[in-house]
Computed example of a mutant assay.
Amino acid sequence: MPFPLSRAAAFVLALMSALPAAAERAEAAECGRASWYALTGRTASGMRADPTGFYAAHRTLPFGTRIRVENLHNGRVVEVRVNDRGPFVRGRIVDVTKAAAAKLGFISAGTAPVRVTVVGRETAAKSC
């Protein structure tokens, strides 16, 4: 016989079971502006920041998620892994490391219009 749960415990269990479903309902692509940063401390995931690696900060995607970032001005693409939270500037959807920004070609500009796609969910491409 199962043990009785308090209302709070039942709520937490229901919330935890809904989180994976919410992640699956996320859009296949997200469009907006990207910026770059050269953090040298610790990231929100606890990793030591590496500006020479290919990492990104995203507000909602789980840590470890691989995303494809495409610069809409020049068509350059890079694949990065989410290991931090941010950006915290209105209108921006992702921050990438300096190395990723160099590959995308927007270091001097500071920001660029991008399409962000979760790797493995590329089937439904969204136009920006």
Rank of each mutant, 00 (worst) to 15 (best):
A44L: 08
A26I: 08
L15D: 01
R121W: 02
T97C: 02
T65C: 05
A99M: 05
L5K: 05
V82I: 15
P4Q: 11
A101K: 01
A22I: 10
V78M: 04
G64K: 01
L13M: 11
G86A: 10
A28L: 06
V12F: 10
A56N: 00
T52K: 13
A22L: 08
G75V: 13
P113M: 01
G75Q: 01
A10M: 11
E70F: 03
I107F: 00
S45W: 14
D95T: 12
L39I: 06
A18S: 15
V78A: 05
F3Y: 02
A125L: 14
F63L: 10
M16L: 14
A99Q: 06
H73Q: 13
C128F: 10
R92I: 06
P87S: 06
D84I: 11
E24L: 04
V78D: 04
R66N: 03
A34I: 07
A29V: 07
G91K: 14
G75P: 05
A21D: 02
P2N: 05
V82M: 05
G53N: 03
V96C: 10
R25K: 06
S6I: 02
A101Y: 09
Y37G: 11
V80A: 09
A56S: 03
A23M: 08
A29F: 08
A10T: 04
R92L: 14
L61D: 01
A100I: 04
E27I: 01
S45P: 11
F63M: 03
G110Q: 08
P51V: 13
R81T: 15
R115L: 09
V82R: 02
A8C: 02
A8T: 09
A10C: 11
E30L: 01
V77Q: 04
C31A: 12
F11S: 04
V80D: 02
A29L: 03
A28Q: 05
V80N: 04
V96R: 00
A23W: 07
E70K: 14
S17G: 07
T123K: 14
R42C: 02
E122R: 02
A22D: 01
H58D: 13
A26R: 11
P20V: 09
A10I: 05
T97G: 03
T97P: 11
I107M: 12
V69M: 06
